[in-house]
Design a protein around this nucleic acid. Structure first.
Lengths: 250, 250
DNA sequence: TTAATAGTGTCTCTGAGACACTATGTG
DNA sequence: CACATAGTGTCTCAGAGACACTATTAA
């Protein structure tokens, strides 16, 4: 196909049609996933230590390149399975990061996702190459901005590339969703008490919630149903166990 | 364990570092922008008619390819300027669409944006290659799903590729934002009456709002300030004109 | 029995809707 | 003047926070 002059191109609706896919450079496209969980009253995120340059020794969200025949969602699911052995977890696209200099090697876009998982599914011990970083949110509410991670011992875990921005966006999004959905149950086992759900919400939001109105709000959504079972061996009156009515409907 | 085998290769943090950017095929990356405005009580979106295959004769959101040295935001701003002559308007990244088959020619990811503009900035007449489609939302609230467009005369304007999905996502996002921001002022001139702001909100939401509480809510945000001026020649008591206090802070 | 948390009943406060009323332009 | 819409004051209702009280288990 004949080449076109740049001037003509801009006004032309057929820009795309005339475009020869091999004519121009294309960026690489990666998917990075913030696998978020709640552990011991802290928000945590799965990280891998970078063993090579660039950003050697710093920590990165698990990620990989999109293959030519898979959708973005599928790539994110594949990475979850490959890197963390997770299937069938809550996963949602977050934002696409595309600063030309975000990766020093070459132009790499990152389509970021976040996943919410029950930590019991995760701490499979030493066999995994994943570590967990405690999320350190320096702002309140849904303000946004970069967010760093620390180890359980309080040491900084410096994040590679723009992954602190991705993490910040994830926290912001999750907090925002919490205002109108009981999304926290994605972080819990199949049955759970209202108190543990409230703990998860409080951990995510970074503030305490009113017990009474939390209970009322959650039950009013109609998304929870009592199992009739109760927890046991807790040293006090056992709470009713609930489950979610429609896990997919979020 | 079967997972273990898959794990071997993926346990390698150096996956990214070892990656040769030229080794694999990369997708093309486009930016498409839903330029949304309110006109005569309808939501409208800017469209260009496709003059060439594929999807010849159908309508598409203005878009183009990301250049290797520009960020995604910059690409979206460039396209706004090139295709619609717009600068300095409200623009936000929406979602990235990446079904492998969404473009029949080659693998093209679309990073979708939406822009909110005052229609007075737009109808520059015949000189533009942009047309406007009336947005036809088949669902209520913030449910989501594809959304089609019609001409002012009511004719269908079939959308190319997955652009109906992009448009649906844009409407969903805009409606969602409206719940906690007076975002509608991005669609109005610099000064405006509370009634016209309410009209914009009602058009976006597709339902009527309570006058009293709308007024209270808007003034309570602290984002509006009275100019001391009033509209004139309206055949009834003129309303106070307001302006926004911090246009950038949304 | 005591400790500790689950769960309920009720009061208050705040914000939204409803509605009545006053204000102020144009014709 | 009448008309039409702007803008205010106030009542009611629903949901959230506060708090007191009862329930139920383990130790």
């Amino acid at each position: 196909m004949a080449e076109r002059k740049i001037g003509e191109r801009n006004n032309e609706p057929e820009f795309l049609a005339a475009y020869d896919a091999t004519e121009f450079d294309r960026p690489s496209v990666a998917v990075d996933v913030a696998i978020v969980t709640v552990m011991d009253g802290h928000l945590e995120v799965a990280l891998v230590e970078r063993a090579e340059h660039p950003a050697k020794g710093s920590w990165a969200l698990p990620g990989g390149f999109v293959q030519m025949d898979e959708s973005l969602d599928r790539a994110a699911n594949r990475l979850l399975a490959e890197k963390a052995g997770l299937t069938d977890v809550y996963l949602e696209q977050l934002y696409t990061f595309g600063e030309p200099t975000r990766d020093p090697r070459t132009r790499v876009l990152s389509v970021a996702y976040y996943a919410l998982v029950d930590h019991a599914q995760l701490d499979t011990g030493a066999e995994s190459s994943l570590s967990f970083g405690r999320i350190d949110v320096p702002w309140e509410g849904e303000t946004g901005g970069p967010v760093d991670a620390r180890s359980q011992q309080g040491q900084e875990m410096p994040l590679a590339f723009d992954h602190a921005d991705i993490l910040g966006m994830a926290v912001k999004r999750i907090r925002g969703k919490l205002d109108y959905t009981p999304i926290g149950f994605q972080l819990l086992a199949a049955t759970f008490t209202l108190r543990s759900l409230q703990d998860a919400h409080e951990t995510i939001l970074g503030r305490t919630l009113n017990k009474d109105s939390f209970r009322r709000r959650m039950l009013a959504t109609g998304l929870l149903e009592a199992t009739g079972e109760r927890e046991s061996e807790v040293g006090h009156r056992p709470a009713e166990l609930y489950r979610f009515t429609k896990r997919s409907a979020i």
